[in-house]
Design a protein around this nucleic acid. Structure first.
Length: 944
RNA sequence: GCCCGGAUGGCGGAAUUGGUAGACGCGCUGGACUCAAAAUCCAGUAAUGGCAACAUUGUGAGAGUUCGAGUCUCUCUCUGGGCACCA
């Protein structure tokens, strides 16, 4: 037998498979369908590196596995070929984008073919193909007709380097996701899709998807649902009202000023007659506009704003007259673009109010329910309410604090006590300190605020619901009165350091203690104060009550923004709309689709906010399909995400000229059963595609309302140096080189063996040797010939391997599946004797991973069939059962012996054998076993 | 700051979900073959002590629950990712 020659074998079988068209897929109602999809690549100029095919290999393994298990599998591939990079590549290399895309697709395809992925290439699609984008445009027109598309003149995100507007999703930390250039706000007319109409469904339907939880969580955060209230504030001496959205209507009594976004329309209206400092306002508005997103949101940036002089608002809760500001910390496009500011309970408002000396009014106080062992409230006791004080007293010289250690029980506190009638809280605090410790000369440093606590008062054996006011004093000297004998009996005075306090004092008092050192504001829920009739109730409950009282209404808000859909670039689908002076904006008639992207002299971006298409007069000038008069075409193009939002459907029916997708075919194949791709698409492509698909569902074009039933993300392959593979670092590994040297099978196997599928692992050419050696050893084993019977030891491992691989492929645990095949080969080499029949089983389970060598050896065994079309082997349970098992014997939790026993051993027998072990006896050391635990099939644990 | 993950030998990683930690692979060490090297094969490989049997320690750190914890609970450190003035 010749040496394992991967080049010869792999080329031979690739040719044969292609000639026989083995990957062709047709509808077959007799079989269960399985649609498995890769995120299609962007055919860039640089070609594939070793990381790209990882996901493709995985889906290829599953696809082959499913085919061998009698599924009718749809496994297609295509190209996401519109968009900026192609255009930029074309500009740089002075070729037309169409030509560049064609070349790049050819190059990509050539690379992919070497890996022998079982795609049905007859279903290949490209988003730049007019027969494809006809339907992208068609779907857009349906949205337009349903009123889901509107034109906006609001400032949008503009990338000055890419010279195009961008959607919210295209930003990364306030910069362009592609080029890293800080985003500016620019006012240009934009087509926007009301994706927010779908926010609730996009959120709710996540629950029914078999996606990884962290991806769902990412989408939930991106959609950003928050519940709150809309409340209106009257403006004094004006007919106008300010409407705000707030998640904290309970804090309304604490709203001491209001803020409008600088771009808020009310500002312009108020300028007309009320605002006295118009000039100052306008300077600030200009500043806001020219700032980049990054400048506006820079971390640690001090808040800025300008007061609207001459205008005030009325707080609807208490009638208070409060000032109005404009400030750029309020965003125009979230909520109503205006807020009620509650500096006592919102960090941002607090910063602002401190800077501009605005009243800070506390309306919610912390409610602490003690959860520590000794102090958590007892279920069986009622709460006794009490107004009380806490006094924290610092030593006159040292860094220690006064505490009381109770003598009867294990309990230490600061000085606490009730407030008597006619006493102020501070008076009560001073009195308690004097009574309990005798210290007299207190200097008040800080009032720490209110705090409510539910706890079990251990010394007094009652449940307390205490309403504390807390004070921080410093002692001026050690002057001290005599303490009464009763007090002395109760507790002793202990001076504690910070560290000691943190260890001994109960939770709620610790919160007070921390307030000494930190300027913290309370932003949580708690007990209402300073809020008239709502005082004393739970702030969570007060939300609805206060909203109702002031005539507001509870509502829901989303962070998700509408989808800015216009790009001022050449290489995209033309937006099929026509501007007519008489008729307004009119849709291009559907029978004129596709609206072809015209050729153009210069497709460079203009940078003015106008698309390069605007320069082609003969294309732009058209007639209005409604009135027949002169009209102009829309010249913006669609974003790259348009085509990828529905491409999964087109594979099902790639050549249909009459309809987006044939309903019967769609019903047969849809939805995608398994979708594999990069996690970076979690908040863009996967949001857009879900939206687009849901829209198609709503208009009856498809029959299932989610596109991707199950989603799995791929972990990226890092370069050998641990960095990302990039031309810039010069650390890119090309799959062509690896396949040439080691073979496609080795390459495929290694990528699946590297680690867990969704983990990012560094490439290692050194480790690649492992899978290669495995294949060489298999080849060699084959050369040795076969026996009439298989060694029972091999048989056992073989059937376990079949079981494990069957399960592992389903669970996407390829690394352990391959490890198991290695274990099998190790056993084969050790025990040698194996029948042809059993070897066939091995080849069948190997074939999804390494199709070429499996097919070659399959043929060498005399088969003239394609292994892909064979049946997946089943395992025989009789080989899974062990007659003998190894029991672990522990003494006090430590392994002292292992004993080999019959699998059916009884508990008593096992215990007897375990106790008989010499080493076990040594560790029992004559003591009497307290307890012997027996776990069937696992262990005997002896406790002495 | 907020929301998700992750941390196991020299390296990539296993661990039936609470039951012998380190499967499998790489690397490394020793041996066989060879004039020699590569390749291949055999043996070893968590650390420490011991000729060995074995003992002690050991899954980022610290506490806890348990006969028993990589796995469960709490606190913390480091780290990857996402979001970030979202009211």
């Amino acid at each position: 037998m010749e040496r394992y020659n991967h080049r010869e074998i792999e080329q031979k079988w690739r040719d044969k498979w292609t000639a026989a068209n083995v990957y062709k897929t047709t509808e077959d109602s007799g079989k269960k369908k399985f649609y498995i999809l890769d995120m299609f690549p962007y055919p860039s100029g640089v070609g594939l590196h070793v990381g790209h095919p990882k996901g493709y290999i995985a889906t290829d393994v599953i696809s082959r596995f499913k085919k061998m298990n009698n599924y009718n599998v749809l496994h297609p591939m295509g190209w996401d070929s519109f968009g900026l990079p192609a255009e930029q590549y074309a500009l740089k290399n002075k070729v037309h984008p169409r030509v560049a895309v064609e070349q790049n697709i050819m190059a990509f395809k050539k690379q992919l073919e070497k890996i022998s992925l079982n795609y049905d290439w007859e279903r290949e699609i490209a988003t730049t193909d007019p027969s494809f984008y006809k339907w992208t445009q068609w779907a857009f027109l349906q949205m337009f007709k349903k009123g889901l598309v509107f034109q906006s003149n609001e400032p949008i995100n503009w990338c000055p380097s890419c010279m195009t507007g961008l959607a919210n999703e295209d930003l990364e930390n306030g910069a362009c996701e592609r080029c890293g250039t800080p985003i500016e706000k620019k006012k240009i007319p934009q087509w926007v899709i009301k994706i927010t109409n779908y926010a609730d469904r996009l959120l709710a339907d996540l629950d029914n998807l078999e996606w990884q939880d962290h991806i769902k969580e990412l989408q939930r955060n991106w959609i950003g649902r928050s519940e709150g209230a809309k409340i209106q504030f009257k403006i004094k001496n004006e007919e106008l009202k300010i409407e705000v959205f707030t998640t904290r209507p309970d804090t309304l009594f604490g709203a001491t000023y209001m803020v409008l976004a600088p771009e808020h329309e009310l500002v312009e209206k108020l300028k007309v007659k009320s605002i006295k400092n118009t000039e100052e306002i306008e300077v600030y508005q200009k500043e806001t506009q020219t700032k980049t997103e990054i400048e506006r949101t820079a971390e640690g940036k001090e808040k800025t704003g300008v007061k609207l002089e001459g205008v005030t608002a009325i707080n609807p809760a208490n009638g208070a007259e409060i000032p109005i500001y404009i400030a750029d910390y309020v965003l125009a496009d979230y909520g109503t673009g205006a807020i009620m500011a509650v500096p006592a309970h919102d960090m941002r408002d607090w910063e602002f109010a401190k800077k501009y000396n605005i009243e800070i009014k506390e309306v919610v106080q912390f409610l602490h329910v003690d959860k520590t062992k000794n102090s958590s409230p007892r279920q069986d006791l009622p709460f006794i309410e009490r107004d009380a004080i806490i006094a924290i007293v610092k030593h006159w010289q040292e860094n220690t604090y006064l505490t009381l250690k109770w003598k009867q029980v294990d309990w230490a506190t600061f000085i606490t006590g009730g407030i008597e009638d006619g006493q102020t809280a501070e008076e009560a605090a001073r009195m308690e300190v004097l009574e309990e410790t005798g210290y007299k000369n207190l200097k008040l440093v800080k009032f720490l605020g209110g705090l409510h606590s539910k706890f079990f008062h251990n010394p007094k054996n009652v449940n307390r619901f205490a309403h504390f006011q807390s004070f921080y004093f410093e002692l001026e000297n050690d002057e001290q009165d005599e303490i009464s004998p009763e007090e002395q009996e109760k507790h002793s005075i202990v001076w504690m350091t910070k560290e000691e306090i943190k260890k001994t004092i109960n939770e709620s008092q610790l919160i007070d203690f921390e307030r000494i050192f930190e300027d913290k504001i309370f932003t949580g829920n708690g007990i209402m104060v300073n809020s008239d009739e709502f005082n004393g109730i739970d702030s969570e409950v007060a939300k609805k009550m206060i909203t109702e009282k002031v005539g507001g209404k509870m509502t829901v808000n989303y962070k998700l923004r509408d989808w800015v859909f216009s790009r001022q670039r050449y290489w995209g689908e033309p937006i099929p709309l026509i501007h007519c002076e008489k008729c307004g904006v009119v849709a291009v008639p559907e029978n004129e689709l596709p609206l072809m992207l015209p050729d153009v002299e210069s497709y460079e971006p203009t940078g003015t906010g106008e698309s390069p298409l605007a320069a082609i007069a003969e294309w732009v000038n058209t007639i209005c399909p409604e009135c027949g008069g002169d009209a102009k075409r829309e010249t913006n193009t669609m974003p790259q995400w348009a085509g990828s939002s529905w491409y999964h459907l087109r594979y099902i029916d790639p050549n249909n000229e009459n309809i987006l997708i044939d309903k019967d075919k769609e019903k047969y194949w849809s939805p995608v059963d398994f979708y594999v791709g990069g996690a970076e698409h979690a908040t863009r492509h996967l949001i857009y595609a879900r939206f687009w698909h849901k829209f198609l569902y709503d208009i009856g074009a498809v029959s299932y309302d989610e596109p991707y039933k199950k989603l799995q993300t791929v972990g990226i392959i890092l370069a050998e140096d641990g960095r990302k593979m990039s031309k810039r670092w010069g650390n890119v590994v090309n799959p062509d080189d690896v396949i040439e040297r080691f073979g496609s099978d080795t390459f495929r196997m290694y990528e699946m063996f590297m680690g867990p599928f969704d983990a990012s692992v560094a490439w290692s050419t050194e480790s690649l040797i492992g899978p290669r050696k495995f294949l060489e050893r298999l080849w060699k084993f084959f050369g040795r010939g076969f026996s009439d019977v298989t060694d029972p030891q091999i048989e056992k491992v073989l059937h376990r391997t079949i079981k494990k691989i069957t399960e592992d492929i389903d669970a996407m645990k390829y690394n352990t599946a391959i490890a198991q095949m290695m274990i099998l080969l190790n056993a084969m080499e050790k025990f040698k004797a194996m029948t042809v029949r059993d070897m066939e089983k091995f080849l069948l389970i190997l074939s999804p991973f390494c199709p070429h060598i499996a097919q070659e050896l399959w043929a060498q065994l005399g088969h003239d069939t394609f292994i892909l079309q064979e049946q997946w082997p089943s395992y025989d349970v009789q080989y899974l059962i062990d007659d003998e098992i190894t029991l672990v014997v522990q003494v006090n939790g430590k392994v002292r012996d292992t004993i080999t026993v019959n699998a059916a051993i009884s508990e008593d027998e096992a215990k007897t054998i375990a106790l008989a072990s010499a080493n076990v006896q040594k560790h029992i050391d004559g003591r009497e076993p307290k307890k012997i635990i027996f776990v069937k099939g696992k262990l005997v644990s002896i406790v002495v």
